[in-house]
């Protein structure tokens, strides 16, 4: 693994970086393992989907994919550079599935065309549908997005649209037949976390398909919050690939997604204005 600066104490505690930490301590064994994300009838081994964009090398990316525990990674489709090393070799070595995206498309027509090319290239009908409004914010163009989603669903695709945090648009996408909806927490690559947690919770309440928080994650607590809000999964790229130590952050994200999922299922205490003592109020010696 390309990770550097790992302390001996850390290695002793958890074996080797990227190896599995003691997952079952303090809870019933198998709870997370049996609580799996299912999209379009297919079970995924992890609730974390890793974007591959931004990695400094294929070696760093491979280490991050392994440490993340993900079973699904996004890729983009671009003109072939015969001299470039194959990204699909990395994907194959890691034993993960490919989720092609339509990044770089600004209209429904472009996105539909790229999705069809991706289906031909990778032999998968799954697509992360992106239709971008402008290059400064990279925010989704909701109108073009819904149009593209409708067309691709009709063409037999399993559509996972990257969308705004607008519950109404999310509902429109679900109604169009999308297999999941993927609202943003904040603009792509911004690391700003979840700017409108209320809307994410509303989207989770509104649609019946899986909700994957996509874009804006900066660090592990953002991923945990997404899961605590009820999201079914998290898709992130830059937070891992552009971290100082990508594999270490990938492992942090894996743990955060698990922690957030458990916390959501555990039923948090209500927020109160005043303190509620947890120690007995009687029995003091005065």
């Amino acid at each position: 693994m390309a990770e550097t600066g790992t302390s001996a104490a850390r290695s002793d505690a958890w074996g080797v970086w990227g190896g599995n930490p003691p997952r079952n301590r303090g809870r019933q064994p198998g709870e997370l393992e049996t609580d799996q994300l299912t999209i379009a009838g297919e079970q995924l081994p992890s609730r974390l989907i890793l974007g591959t964009g931004g990695a400094t090398s294929h070696a760093a990316l491979e280490a991050a994919i392994r440490a993340s525990g993900t079973g699904l990674v996004t890729v983009a489709l671009r003109r072939l550079d015969p001299g470039a090393p194959s990204l699909l070799d990395v994907v194959e070595r890691c034993g993960v599935r490919v989720l092609p995206n339509t990044a770089g498309c600004y209209t429904a027509t472009e996105a539909v065309r790229l999705a069809h090319l991706a289906r031909e290239a990778f032999d998968t009908a799954w697509v992360k549908l992106e239709v971008i409004g402008d290059e400064e914010t990279l925010l989704p163009d909701a109108v073009e997005l819904v149009t593209a989603a409708e067309r691709l669903v009709e063409d037999g695709f399993t559509v996972l649209p990257y969308t705004t945090d607008d519950p109404i648009i999310a509902q429109r996408l679900a109604d169009a037949g999308c297999a999941a909806v993927m609202p943003l927490g904040a603009p792509i690559g911004s690391g700003l976390g979840i700017r409108n947690p209320h809307n994410i919770a509303l989207i989770r309440q509104k649609v019946t398909v899986p909700v994957i928080l996509d874009a804006g994650i900066g660090t592990a607590s953002d991923a945990a919050l997404a899961m605590e809000l009820g999201c079914d999964g998290v898709l992130l790229a830059s937070a891992v690939t552009r971290a100082e130590h990508p594999a270490r952050m990938a492992e942090a994200m894996r743990l955060a997604v698990d922690a957030g999922r458990l916390a959501h299922a555990a039923g948090r205490i209500p927020r109160r204005l005043y303190a509620t003592a947890s120690s007995p109020t009687g029995g003091l010696p005065w």
């Binding site: 964009g53 489709l77 671009r78």
Partner: peptide, 10 residues
């Protein structure tokens, strides 16, 4: 003619 393949992308 465009010949396309996978590259890193989020």
């Amino acid at each position: 003619i465009d010949v396309l393949t996978a590259v890193q992308g989020g």
